[in-house]
């Protein structure tokens, strides 16, 4: 029980602290209320059809939703391909000032404003990917549906996924590195004690950290779902729905960024965009809660 003075202290902190709660409630309420119109008018078609025709008042968000998910999957594959080796290098192979420099670079990457990634990706990375990744894949492997269309400008789902993946790599690396380094040293000593090589002990330690790594990837996935500036700059922005990764498409946030400004001109357009965002917000919040609780639970189990 709190004493009277403690209670006073608590009450004096409470009003401003509740701002976080108020913001969350208002946010979800606003998005929910603004999307009611379109959801009640179009029903489930809103999420299963693919059209954007304000003149005829028909909307379907299938392409942007699929685009968001596919882009984020590519992003998280890219990020895990980079961040797990990066974690191992920083934690196992580097020492002293080299370790400091490399982890500083990763920290520097992590806070870089996304707009700068967007500028760089749209001017350098996309042309690079088109010339050295998409064109070769198309000319040799075009029988695979994923690579079956000719890359025209390079601005595409694949380009957006890789660009976003590079931008979330430092975030995912920080999470995995924290988990990996928090494994008590007795496990490593046990590995070396039975004569394991470094590779074998890393394999054992990584399998011990697996739940935390998966949680880190889930958190990275949630973050890339909401990424806007990089997506707009690299995905090519067209209402396209097909299997090919080289064709331009939309993500939900890219669609909003390019259509919201004029949406007030049409009766349902604004509400449709809010409905798209509603899905994204719900998925992001659930995934991030799942990810962060998993990491906390894993830590209390491994670190005794």
């Amino acid at each position: 029980m709190l004493s009277r003075k403690d209670k006073l202290f608590f009450m004096s902190l409470l009003p401003l602290s509740l701002s976080l709660l108020a913001i969350l409630i208002i946010s979800i309420a606003v998005i929910g209320i603004r999307s009611i119109d379109s959801i009640s008018f179009f029903g489930s078609k809103l999420y299963t059809m693919n059209v954007w025709d304000p003149e005829a008042e028909v909307y379907g968000l299938l392409a942007p939703i699929a685009g968001s998910i596919v882009t984020s999957v590519i992003a998280i594959l890219t990020a895990s391909f980079f961040s797990i080796p990066l974690t191992i290098t920083i934690a196992e192979y580097l020492k002293g000032s080299t370790k400091n420099i490399v982890s500083s670079i990763v920290e520097l990457m992590g806070g870089l404003p996304t707009i700068i990634y967007a500028v760089w990706a749209s001017q350098y990375l996309v042309p690079f990917l088109k010339q050295y990744v998409m064109d070769p894949l198309y000319s040799y492997l075009s029988f695979i549906p994923l690579f079956s269309c000719k890359p025209i400008t390079g601005f595409s789902v694949l380009a957006a996924g890789i660009s976003i993946g590079i931008s979330i790599t430092p975030y995912v690396t920080a999470l995995i590195l924290e988990a990996y380094q928090s494994i008590p040293s007795i496990y490593r000593e046990a590995c070396y004690g039975i004569g394991a090589t470094r590779y074998e002990s890393i394999k054992i330690l990584l399998s011990l950290a697996r739940p935390a790594i998966i949680a880190a990837l889930v958190l990275g996935f949630a973050r890339s779902l909401g990424e806007t500036t990089i997506a707009v700059a690299t995905i090519g922005n067209s209402m396209n729905l097909n299997l090919c990764l080289f064709s331009p498409s939309y993500t939900v946030s890219a669609l909003i960024a390019s259509q919201f400004a004029n949406a007030y001109l049409y009766p349902y357009a604004e509400s449709v965009l809010y409905a798209g965002m509603l899905i994204l917000v719900i998925i992001s919040i659930l995934l991030s809660l799942y990810g962060s609780t998993t990491i906390i639970r894993w830590r209390s189990r491994v670190i005794v």
Binding site: S17, L18, L20, L21, I23, L24, I26, S27, V30, I31, R34, A222, R223, L225, G226, E227, T228, S253, I256, A257, F260, L273, Y274, M277, L280, V281, S284, I285, L287, S288, L289, S292
Partner: peptide, 20 residues
């Protein structure tokens, strides 16, 4: 509750904040 909410708020896409 506040701790959990801070985590959820951080995961809301920033473009959603703009719309709100």
């Amino acid at each position: 509750v506040i701790d959990t909410i801070a985590k959820s708020l951080a995961s809301i896409p920033t473009i959603a904040v703009s719309m709100i």
